[in-house]
Design a protein around this nucleic acid. Structure first.
Length: 431
RNA sequence: UCCUCGGUAACUCAAUGGUAGAGUGAGCGGCUGUUAACCGCUAAGUUGCAGGUUCGAGCCCUGCCCGAGGAGCCA
């Protein structure tokens, strides 16, 4: 008898198959039992009627509890009455283990309880859909870069030198060499790699010890960061548009079923096509002031400011040329205007906020040394980084995209915590 | 770190300062097409912790602990 995964059950219509999985839910009318079985690839309703199977098999229904593990044999049928189109007429059930008091019931639960049971919550159909979309998003990102001949270069997670200023870093003792920090970005290493390979990207976890407590923050999150030699910031923004469009449209194609089950409005995603909207930082400030914001030129945009701007359009919005003072030291000053840098943030629509930050990097040795001194950063730690401006410096640019914020946006989720299997947040390290 | 809200049965929530209750889940029984099935019965509580006010506190006051939403900061 063939073993089969539920996602390919359609290939086995009128055949007898074996399914291995877990009991999601059960219902009965007394002489007819319904078992909803999941196997990680999907869900199928299985049916048995009294008299049509041996009594011993029929009575195993009474013993089965939610999330008990089991193997079943049955004949595959197409049936409109089944929740997923196909149904299994059972011939045998073999119990592997009876689950005792599975805590997550089919009814409502609160956030705290679900987060404490995250290891089990992942079994529910909504979480399954989100993780499948996340999987497609990541695959689309990697495919995009692979097809463009970008090289994947893995950057270190334990670092000595710090990437940027402001944010707080997780630190740990590193043998006799002093403090090591968990990487908040791979960018500086990316620049070294771009000078070696031309166009590259890294994909990995990053860490911020910020005491942020919002629906858009994690202390551990995944970032995809690209770096390109001979790209100015205009080339950089064009690449970002192409990248986002590719990822959204591909996921829309590959994960339609999951997005529909998450009740995502697909028409909103269908509109994510190049070119995206653009607005300079100066224009953004003017618009915000006209609409009652207290923001002053020179400070970074707040969450509410971003939402006001992003809601003007149905497509993502680039805000470019930020003041030098609110951006990282490595960004290249605008040659026409020394008070702003050649950079852009990409704001996702529907209030999802910043998902990409990018810039042209300062390629001049003296100017970079000056900026490092201004920021009071340890010059020694950046010696290798400065070498990149000594040995064949070229114009180069790059960007970083937050994977979880992108997943939240594409799935239409209210909170980032459901976009990663085991979220790390300021007040949560378990499970 | 700051502001706001919350903590009552395993879960989700009720309960004018006056006998702590319902639904879900669990257990038992019924039902031959159920769709978070339905119907009946049963068990289930140190009301987050420590004090205080009061004849009497789940409810009012103080402190602490835990969580959520937001701010700042960021992807």
């Amino acid at each position: 008898m063939p073993f089969c995964y539920i996602e390919e059950i359609g290939k086995y219509v009128s055949q007898k198959v074996t399914i291995k999985g877990w009991l999601y839910n059960k219902r009965s009318s007394g002489k007819i039992h319904f078992l909803l079985i999941r196997d990680g690839t999907g869900m199928i309703q299985s049916v048995m009627s009294k008299g049509e199977v041996p009594d011993a098999v029929f009575e195993t229904y009474d013993k089965l509890t939610q999330e008990s593990s089991l193997e079943v044999d049955g004949v595959v049928r197409e049936d409109k009455r089944a929740p997923r189109g196909y149904e299994l007429t059972l011939t045998d059930i073999r119990i592997i283990q009876i689950a005792q008091d599975y805590p997550i019931t089919p009814k409502e639960h609160g956030t705290d309880f679900l987060m404490d049971n995250r290891h089990l919550w992942l079994r529910s159909s909504r979480q399954q859909a989100i993780m499948r979309v996340r999987n497609e998003i990541i695959y689309a990102m990697r495919t995009f870069f692979y097809e463009k001949r970008f090289i994947l270069i893995d950057t270190p997670i334990l670092t000595g030198s710090i990437g940027e200023t402001a944010t707080t870093l997780f630190e740990t003792q590193y043998f006799d060499l002093g403090k090591a920090y968990l990487a908040q970005t791979g960018q500086l290493y990316n620049e070294a790699a771009a000078m070696a390979f031309g166009r590259m990207y890294c994909f990995g976890p990053t860490f911020r010890a910020e005491k942020s407590k919002t629906r858009r923050h994690l202390t551990e999150f995944w970032m995809v960061e690209a770096e390109m030699a001979f790209y100015d910031n205009e080339d950089n923004m064009k690449l970002q548009e192409e990248f986002i469009e590719y990822v959204v449209q591909r996921v829309l194609d590959k994960s339609k079923k999951e997005l529909v089950s998450l009740e995502r409005d697909l028409s909103k995603l269908e509109k994510i096509r190049r070119p995206f909207e653009r607005m300079s930082y100066d224009e953004a400030i003017n618009h915000l002031k006209k609409n009652g914001s207290k923001i002053e030129w020179g400070s970074d945009l707040g969450g509410e400011d971003e939402t006001i701007l992003a809601n003007l359009y149905e497509k993502p919005l680039f805000v470019y040329n930020y003041p030098r003072q609110c951006k990282a030291f490595y960004m290249k000053p605008n040659p026409q205007r020394a008070d702003v840098v050649l950079c852009s943030d990409l704001l996702a629509p529907e209030g999802y906020g910043e998902i990409v930050g990018g810039s042209q990097r300062d390629d001049d040795y003296d100017s970079l040394v000056q900026r490092i001194k201004e920021e009071k950063l340890p010059l020694d730690a950046y010696k290798w980084y400065l070498d990149l401006r000594k040995y064949g410096t070229v114009i180069h640019s790059g960007f970083g995209l937050g994977v979880e914020r992108t997943v939240a946006w594409i799935c239409g989720l209210p909170h980032i915590r459901e976009t990663i299997p085991f979220p790390r947040m300021i007040y949560r390290l378990y499970p």
